[in-house]
Simulated assay, not measured.
Amino acid sequence: MTKVFLTGASGFIGAHILNDLLNHGHTVVVAVRSATRGQQILNRHDRDAANKRVSFVVVEDFVKQGAFNHVLQTNAPFDAVIHTASPYFYNPYDPENEILRPAVQGTIGILRSVTEYAPTVKRLVITSSFAAMINFNRHPATYSESVWNPMTYEDALRPSVTYPASKKLAEEAAWDFMEKEKPHFSLTTFCPPLVFGPVIHHLESLRDINTSNTRIRDFIQGKYKDAIPPSNLYLWVDVRDLAHAHIRALTATGAENERFFVTAGHYDNKQIVDIIREEYPHLSEVFPPKDLSGDLPKDVYQYDNSKSVNVLGLTYRTLRESVRDTVASLLKIKE
């Protein structure tokens, strides 16, 4: 088994990755921005913490130059690194300094730190996003790993598109680094679309839920009694499948220096509402009317997830299973 350095373990995706790592027998050191977040993680994994299979280090500023140098040295040796942490502001006040630079510099920073201070690392995995692939102006017929968001740095200075552009620029910078520096480790990136699934990390309230799951939260809270809101994006994946993809990337032959598009397929908000109505009939009174139509276009863009299936051996959960389990987890969290 391997020793893994993980960032973002206090978040929605990172928490599931940590679970999967521990379930597969790995030892994990997680980087968190505060001791409070670190302790919350240990409390959730008390047995593994007691056995020293999970521990945390505080890195207050992930973007600061050399932020990971010391922790990689003092907690060595590591076999792999998984980087999931990323800045996110829905309406940034300062797009360049709040999102663009942190996204790119944070990604390059950990690549450089591993290159210089973690000589035993063999594989590095980064969570990118479908945002790094999407073309808002003209969707391709089929989305696959070969497709890239066409936005430039100048485009990204517009607050409305800063986040998706930052994901493209950060991932692009990572691959440029690999090409120029040729480090001792391989790189694997993942580009998930909307990520649904049960919440297992610490939340103070449902107000703090991850962006993709907000639509499910809003449905069960009765925020859309009269209409179904636009779906906007028609591809999704369950967080547990995404987490498992990260774990497989640490050992799977053929995952080295590859980009993966991880998606379970199409959906729309109408399908989500119908599933919740059927699985949780006691909530039906807060839902939109049954006779409303969905908005999944007949000519919606297609997807090719065959690489994730063939190389990583992924078997994707159904939308019903994902939505059902998501709602079950949300009903346990205070408003």
Score class of each variant (00 low, 15 high):
320 R>G: 00
141 A>W: 03
313 G>R: 15
317 R>I: 07
41 I>F: 08
22 L>P: 02
6 L>C: 10
232 N>G: 01
101 R>H: 02
319 L>C: 04
170 A>S: 09
256 E>P: 14
48 D>L: 15
271 Q>L: 04
80 A>R: 00
49 A>H: 01
306 S>R: 10
305 N>H: 02
123 R>K: 07
310 N>A: 05
49 A>K: 03
287 F>P: 06
196 F>M: 14
20 D>I: 11
17 I>M: 10
15 A>W: 13
178 M>E: 10
37 R>M: 05
22 L>H: 05
136 F>R: 12
52 K>T: 01
82 I>T: 06
309 V>S: 04
331 L>T: 07
125 V>C: 06
269 N>D: 13
269 N>G: 12
106 G>F: 11
52 K>W: 06
152 T>K: 15
151 M>L: 15
200 I>S: 13
283 L>Q: 11
135 N>K: 14
227 A>G: 06
161 V>D: 08
71 V>H: 05
227 A>L: 06
204 E>A: 13
16 H>G: 05
50 A>S: 13
9 A>W: 11
1 M>D: 06
136 F>D: 09
74 T>R: 14
241 D>A: 12
168 K>A: 05
192 P>S: 10
108 I>P: 13
56 F>M: 12
308 S>D: 10
24 H>A: 05
334 K>N: 09
96 E>N: 07
39 Q>E: 12
92 P>E: 00
234 Y>T: 05
33 R>P: 03
231 S>T: 15
89 F>H: 10
235 L>I: 11
47 R>K: 08
73 Q>N: 00
20 D>S: 11
230 P>M: 15
160 S>T: 09
19 N>I: 01
260 F>W: 04
263 T>F: 08
253 T>Y: 02
239 V>R: 11
55 S>L: 11
322 S>Q: 00
313 G>W: 14
53 R>A: 05
35 A>Y: 15
62 F>H: 03
186 S>F: 04
26 H>V: 14
234 Y>I: 05
32 V>H: 03
178 M>L: 12
160 S>Q: 13
164 P>F: 11
196 F>V: 10
